[in-house]
Amino acid sequence: MSQFLQVMLSGLATGSIYALVAIGFTLIWQSAKTVNFAQGEFVMLPAFFVLVCTKVLALPLWLALIVALAVTVVVLGVLFKKLVVEPILPSGGIPLTIATMALAIFLKESVKEFYGAEAQPFPPLFPSQTLNVFGAVISLQDICNLVVALAIVVVLTLFLNRTRTGRCMQAAAQNPAVAEILGINVRRMVLYAFLINGALAALASFLITPVYLAKFSNGEVLGLIAFIAAIVGGFNQIRGALAGGLLIGVLDNLTATYVTAEYRAALPLVLLIVVILVRPQGLLGTSEGRAV
């Protein structure tokens, strides 16, 4: 029982970080019809921005995190939109999707060449003590990750549902033409979606890298899990991506502990195929949102 509790909690903790990545992926998809295959690399990169700040520029960690967040929002938000998405979107969805794959290679190889191919230790943001709850050993880091990630989701949801800008963003994503007629600056709303995606990627990166170490190839697995989380949960909403992320985190841990450790990495494929066969609109998705 205590083992089960441990497995569940650490699953929820990693799952909540996957959810952040999946939410960003969903936002970009909704607002710009872009399937971003570089999403995993978007999470890999900010950790290296932090490392450059602390190691090369010798900044304290808190400042390094802020600088890295800002740089990520500019590079992976603004520049990604201006240099990759905008020029290629007119030629269609498939060229754009392939361009994001090329971008993934570009980011991965750049980090490998300019920073290093070895896994780099990353400073933990939270104390790595463990607590004893009903006989289960629970790491404080897991709890902090879970709380912070869920807090980010709550703030984002409040922003999208309760503020004027957030509601404008939703309108622009649902029906750009009508939104334009109603006086919403659709281009700016799309830009906001890219900025939020950049910020979410950076935050996910800061939370997950202390666990996995910073390595240029981190994005491959992370990206795959985020896509699957978004699809499993339902492509068209934030709570879908959240549910999908948490579900994959927990199932992954359960599989590794109770079923098979060797084939745990095959879980996303199994989950994906089951969802497509049984409920193609995703667990929480509505079918009309899946018309595309």
Partner: peptide, 9 residues
């Protein structure tokens, strides 16, 4: 990879 992105544009 950078050239591929430019080419696609």
């Amino acid at each position: 990879s950078a050239l591929v992105i430019v080419m696609l544009a």
